[in-house]
Structures are given as C-alpha cells and as structure tokens.
Amino acid sequence: MSGTASGAPAAGAVIVAPATRADLPAIVSILARETLLGVRDSTEPAAFPEYERAFDEIATDPRATLYVARLDGRVVGTFQLVFFRALLRHGTLLAHAEAVQVDPEVRGKGVGRAMMDFAIAEARRRGAGSLQLASNKQRHDAHRFYERAGFEKRLDGFKIDLAGHG
C-alpha cells in the first residue's frame, strides 16, 4: 500500500480491505461479468436479496471475510478468504481463497496481484499452514497469473454441482 505525505493512498495504489454492505452492488457487478463458464451471477434487482443474505451470513462468520480491492476509490476486485482447521498435518489451520475476480476493465494493472499478496500475508498472519484456491481448467490466463503469484499447481480437484440434483 502506498501513501502520500497526507497519509492518503497514492493515485493508482490498490487498497485491499474487508468489504462493506455498501460495496455489494459493485461486487455483484464484477461477479456477473465473469461469463466464461456461462452466466452464473446477475445484477437483476430480483436477485439482490439473495446476495444480501449471503453477505450478511459471511459477515457474521468469524472464519470467513469478503474483501474488495479499490483502485482510485472504486471497487475493482473481490475475493473471499476462508479459514478452517483440518486434522492433517497435526491439526493445521488452512486458508482457502474463493471467488477471486477482477473487473475486466482493469485486468493487468496489479489488482489481482495486490489481492493475492494480501491473501498470502493474511493467511500467514493468522497462522495458516497453506493457502489454496481452485480455478476452473478453462481459465488459462488465471492459471498463469496464480503461478506468477507463487502458487504451485499441485492438485487435481473434483466438483459436483448440487443445485438442481434431487
């Protein structure tokens, strides 16, 4: 984080901080623009109560924090950081980054790197043994980005979508 003599962030500095409810429309807008895997999020007003309920639940969970990245005061990125304890490795604390998204208009300007640097530092600060994330196999640019940010491609993941399954 850069600052000026007045203590204010320098122009062009990416600031990562916990999201507030006021950030929710900007977050949903960013999520809705990710369509590589089809349309999964919506800025339709009828869908907004679902996002509000989810935000409120996340906000009350001490194991999870939703973050935003701001560039010149505007929300341009988001991710969620979740901590959980596992029995493996003598009961280590693990961190997981979820829903990592950067506004397509500002990709390549250091927003994603600032978010991942923050996530790594926060996971270390909280004593996590590792930080992991999952990325769809089709997101080749994202994979290159994560590798440049220090992540190793070590795992094959499996997923089953449960919505609509009876």
Rank of each mutant, 00 (worst) to 15 (best):
G3L: 13
N136I: 02
E50I: 05
V100I: 10
P62M: 02
A119P: 02
E50C: 05
G166L: 06
K159R: 11
E98K: 07
G38C: 01
E105G: 06
A54W: 11
R139P: 00
D103N: 01
S2K: 08
L37T: 12
T4N: 11
E122P: 05
R124S: 15
G150N: 08
K137Y: 12
L87Y: 12
S6G: 07
Y51G: 08
R154M: 06
D23H: 14
A13P: 04
G3V: 13
A97Q: 10
T20S: 04
G108C: 13
H90F: 03
D141W: 11
E147T: 14
Q132F: 14
A13N: 06
K109E: 09
T65V: 13
F55L: 04
P49S: 07
R53Q: 14
V82T: 11
H165D: 10
F83W: 08
V39G: 04
D72I: 08
R124N: 15
A47V: 09
Q101M: 12
R107S: 02
P104M: 13
A163V: 14
D61G: 02
G77E: 05
R125C: 15
V75G: 09
A163C: 08
R74V: 15
L131Q: 08
D117P: 01
A59E: 12
G150L: 12
V28G: 10
A95I: 00
R21M: 10
A121E: 11
T65Q: 00
A32E: 03
G127N: 03
D161V: 13
R40E: 12
M116G: 04
L133K: 09
I160C: 07
V39Q: 11
Q80V: 12
L87I: 08
T78S: 06
N136A: 09
V82I: 08
I15G: 02
Q101S: 13
A163L: 12
L36P: 01
V39L: 06
R40S: 13
Q132K: 09
R53F: 07
A8G: 00
S2T: 03
V75I: 10
E57S: 04
H96I: 03
V68D: 00
A97R: 07
R113Y: 07
F48P: 00
